[in-house]
């Protein structure tokens, strides 16, 4: 304790540096391939077409008639899909964790949607949701609808369309939330749960009082990852209804970059939207982490 030899102090310093050395490659990598493009976009968002400094781009985005609808649609989708998907995923995970005969196969089936590429998913729903598509065909075979009474899935009010998009998106996203929760469930020692039953708890009480609290950090992980990607939803919407009909935030970025790249304002709109979206995502993530107490429990989670 008293006078440590210089050699030992050097060794200490060396071993202290080890974790930083291990993390260094990631830092360098992110600096090269993430920070550079991000900084470029950030700078562009304050630039006029001619190259001078301006706030005009942000003013243009905020006064864009599509901005408020985009913000509103995104918010609705995020609130409903994150909560719906969480409940459905938790339900599936609890089910699979009962380890019944065939649960492994069922797990595989439940994971298939997350493996499908966007192109396949697009073709699948487009042929399903059209009036003469497989959804109505199936309902017809099942005698639920008559031949002349088709259901028009993709028409009608905006709310109906939003609901449909949330469901279609959930179909593909639930598995990735589910496997995180399932991993957390598998980590809970069986004795703990059994103890709950021994002391007279029924299934729901045990779930509420023991399983979910123990699952805390896992739920945090699952929800934060889902929250971040839910705010960035756009592709499935464009595949189903095209650009501009159901504006959402990231769809606006892609719209100005890919659909109307020729406009004088396209570049500024796209970079403005990009920065605003990133700010919204990070604010939402921070708020969630704070609300769920992630910052307080950091120390113990760090084992």
């Amino acid at each position: 304790m008293t006078a440590a030899s210089p050699a030992k102090r050097f060794r200490d310093l060396g071993s202290k540096a080890v974790p930083y050395l291990l993390i260094l490659p990631v830092v360098v990598y992110y600096f090269l391939f993430w920070l550079r493009p991000v900084l470029k976009t950030l700078i562009d968002s304050f630039r006029t077409a001619a190259g001078g400094f301006t706030f005009q781009n942000y003013i243009m985005v905020f006064t864009d008639p599509n901005f408020m609808p985009a913000l509103r649609n995104t918010a609705i989708i995020v609130v409903f899909s994150v909560s719906l998907e969480f409940i459905a995923a938790l339900f599936l995970a609890l089910l699979i964790n009962r380890k019944f005969f065939g649960s492994s196969l069922f797990l595989f089936v439940a994971m298939i949607p997350m493996a499908l590429p966007a192109v396949a998913v697009g073709a699948m729903w487009l042929t399903g949701l059209t009036a003469h598509g497989w959804m109505n065909s199936l309902l017809y075979y099942l005698n639920i609808i008559a031949e002349s009474h088709k259901i028009y899935w993709l028409t009608g009010s905006e709310w109906k369309l939003l609901a449909l998009i949330i469901v279609v998106d959930a179909w593909q996203v639930i598995p990735s939330v589910m496997i995180i929760l399932l991993a957390g469930l598998q980590n809970i020692p069986e004795e703990t749960i059994e103890a709950g039953y021994v002391f007279g708890g029924d299934y729901l009480t045990v779930l509420r009082k023991i399983t979910v609290p123990l699952l805390g950090p896992t739920i945090q992980t699952a929800v934060i990852l889902r929250l971040i990607s839910a705010i960035q939803i756009w592709l499935i919407i464009v595949l189903l209804v095209g650009f501009s009909r159901m504006p959402v935030l990231v769809e606006r970025i892609v719209y100005y970059h890919e659909e109307v790249p020729g406009l004088d304002i396209s570049f500024q709109m796209a970079s403005g939207y990009t920065i605003i979206v990133s700010l919204i995502v990070s604010t939402a993530a921070l708020l969630y982490l704070r609300a769920s107490g992630a910052f307080g429990s950091k120390k113990e989670a760090a084992r």
């Binding site: 949701l129 009036a131 003469h132 028409t155 189903l240 209804v241 095209g242 009909r245």
Partner: peptide, 19 residues
């Protein structure tokens, strides 16, 4: 107009499906 007209990006498919 066909009820699903706002979801049509090409008339080939709806014509072939007889929608």
């Amino acid at each position: 107009f066909v009820p699903s007209v706002l979801n049509i990006d090409s008339c080939v498919d709806p014509m072939m499906r007889e929608e």
